[in-house]
Amino acid sequence: MAPILELQDVHAAYGRIEVLHGVDLAVPRGAVVALLGPNGAGKSTLLKVCSGRLRATSGHVHLGGSHVNDAAPDALARAGLCTIPEGRGIFPNLTVAENLRLSGLAGQASAAEIYETAFARFPRLAERYDQLAGSLSGGEQQMLAMARALVTDPAVLLVDELSMGLAPLIVRQLYEVLAQIAERGVTVVAVEQFADTALAVADFAAVMTQGRIVAFDEPGVVRRDLAELYLGGATV
């Protein structure tokens, strides 16, 4: 199966500081890939490059078999690449319904269809229909973020630190939802620091340290070598 997302020798930098030092990664279509690694490894930067928010200084970014190095983020979003950024990225001063409608503007779906899609996956949000998003709990805000992504009908979903600031129970629930989304054929790349939770739902796991992918394998293999990988003792 041809990978839907493929990176070859990708380098990226913030100004003069290079963060990615030649990343190679191939994400199969429909798979859930957990991108693991310690703080500062370059996981979030890699997602930015994939979503077009940061230009690769060199290397190739292929999406759906096309070269998308210079593609604009909005063009990629319309094409079906959706990102749930770290910190959720919701509009706290808009209601839940308004946040959902806003995300659906790019598509053809009506408001009713948007609500139906969102509330079917997250019934809790229906109860908070006209509540300001900023007044929701952390878990509910993350649900809203995921719901907004769902209403765009994504083909590839990039999730950055889904578990940040949430209770373990809530995190587990959210990952279950993520698995359900993947079952519909959506490719998921989830950046996560809590390896166990992510590996539980992932088809593959990649480990990043110091701007490079140092391991890419099935979750069981990665879990076994995780401690060593985090310490930089293993190579792919």
Binding site: M1, A2, I4, Q8, R29, H60, H62, L63, G64, G65, S66, H67, V68, N69, D70, A71, A75, L76, R78, A79, G80, L81, D153, P154, A155, V156
Partner: peptide, 25 residues
Amino acid sequence: GLLFGGAGCEMGHSTGVPDLREVDE
């Protein structure tokens, strides 16, 4: 991209943004 051909791909991939929902597997 259409006008200037984009950066081009050494791997032979076409340049542009495909609709990922309709890409053949």
